[in-house]
Design a protein around this nucleic acid. Structure first.
Lengths: 145, 145
DNA sequence: CTGAATGTAACCGTAACTGTTACGACTGAC
DNA sequence: GTCAGTCGTAACAGTTACGGTTACATTCAG
């Protein structure tokens, strides 16, 4: 069980919403979504809260409330989702306690690593930007038995 | 403090060894390396153990023992290091508990995500393969005050 | 033999995440 | 206005992983 699965859950939720909204009578509640993701509604609400802050979904409160996509699935890339749920946490971490500044390697290694890790992050983002929620939905539907 | 910093420490260690071996009289011990990384010698030994399993370094036991690079710094890429210290843990995790298989999205989302995550991993590896320990050492030395 | 270093196992404290319960806030339906 | 259903959020428990530390057996040059 490695790290966090927020990106996974967020993509699942958005893909589910993209499919569900094809039924005009359907109302997307955290309860219904939680059944598909097989988790707790609060986990879904936490996730959707982050997606709302990023402007990807909207919520309505009160009776008959629920969630809806704020943008077309074709316009939501996985990079948008990644940025929405990622807490600025870098993909690879630097040293816990800073290395010895009196050692040449200890002095220069962190800037050098930051540059490398920056390129890694950039590569990941480029790749994430190539897929949209609409692509995911198509892919998911093509895999039905 | 996000996730693990093993790749960071491993690159630091190897870069340090690449510099240290320029002095023929120097002996690379986990104690000396730990001073530069600013951590415990056991942490360094654990890291070097993984690097040895991958054939990147060698160890000598007994009195006057220590560590040495098993390959030229120019031939060790950061991908080699990543593969050596990475415990098969994927960069992005799938669901903790499998999603509902009776929901179309829950059924197809995991294979779809696996494909996407595979492309992400591939992008990271491609980028890691472009830098060697020798490159890191040059970069580090260029940053000295 | 002696000392210095590796190789490991064991344990602790911390941090993060998921899952869960609980409860207040909001709002459409009646 | 009341009610019921949902969001919003705080709080807590359980699990996991990691870094750090101590301890000790193992190995080997001198």
């Amino acid at each position: 069980m490695s790290g966090n699965s927020r990106l996974c859950v967020a993509v699942h939720v958005l893909t589910w919403m993209a499919l569900d909204r094809r039924d005009p009578a359907a109302v997307a509640t955290s309860q219904r979504i939680a059944v598909s993701v097989n988790t707790n509604p609060v986990v879904i609400r936490r996730c959707l809260g982050q997606l709302r802050e990023a402007g990807l979904v909207q919520s309505r409160r009160g009776a008959g409330a629920g969630w809806s996509l704020a943008r077309e699935p074709e316009s939501i890339t996985l990079l948008d989702v990644y940025l929405a749920v990622g807490d600025d946490e870098p993909l690879f971490a630097l040293h816990h306690s800073p290395p010895s500044q009196s050692c040449p390697v200890g002095f220069g290694i962190q800037p050098a690593l930051r540059q490398v890790f920056g390129r890694l992050d950039e590569a990941v983002r480029r790749e994430l930007a190539t897929t949209t929620i609409a692509d995911m939905l198509l892919d998911v539907l093509a895999r039905q038995p």
